[in-house]
Simulated assay, not measured.
Amino acid sequence: MSPGVLPLKTPIAVNPGDLVDILVWLSGNQRGRLPDTVTLSFMLVGPIPITGFERLVNGINVPWGGSTPRFPGPYVEWEFSPSDAFRSLGFRFAAGGATLMTLRLKNSGFANIGAILDDVSVTVRPLESSPSL
């Protein structure tokens, strides 16, 4: 992932109670240079509350500390050493209202070398099929 921003071009619709998972697989640049900082963020259109918010690292909920994030949407930054292995990073939350969601990945690397992005997935599960948080 070269330095710069990788935005989602088409917003994703979410409805009240939908469970949303946003996951990316990232690793260090594997080239023995300086570390990279990658920012994953999402925005909800309108002042929509979110509930059951989790920050996921390799499928495990890592506590945020503080209050549950609200509009405009949280972000998280990760720093990768050049030799860091791939790991799954992301968010899980339930939408408190109908809205549109956009995503953005930003790599603050050096020159044309950056963290390695392998996969991005967004899953929106309707309320009736979502497990309780």
Rank of each mutant, 00 (worst) to 15 (best):
G97C: 04
G32E: 04
A98Y: 05
A13I: 08
P126L: 07
V76W: 11
L89W: 03
L117V: 07
V20P: 00
D118A: 15
D118M: 09
V20H: 02
V45T: 08
S130A: 15
P16L: 13
G97V: 01
F86I: 00
L26V: 08
W78N: 04
A115N: 01
G73N: 06
A111M: 12
L117E: 11
R87Y: 03
T37F: 02
L133E: 02
N29G: 09
S108M: 12
N15S: 15
P16M: 11
G52T: 04
F42Q: 00
N58I: 04
I113G: 03
G28D: 03
L105S: 05
I50V: 15
A13P: 13
P11R: 07
V120Q: 02
D119T: 13
L133Y: 10
F80M: 02
A85N: 06
K106R: 14
I48A: 11
M1Y: 06
T102S: 15
G96R: 04
D119G: 10
S88L: 05
P35Y: 05
T51C: 04
T102Q: 14
S81M: 05
L34G: 04
S67N: 11
P49F: 04
S2W: 04
V120F: 14
N15F: 15
M43S: 10
W25N: 12
D18I: 01
L8D: 14
S132D: 08
I113A: 15
E79C: 06
A94D: 05
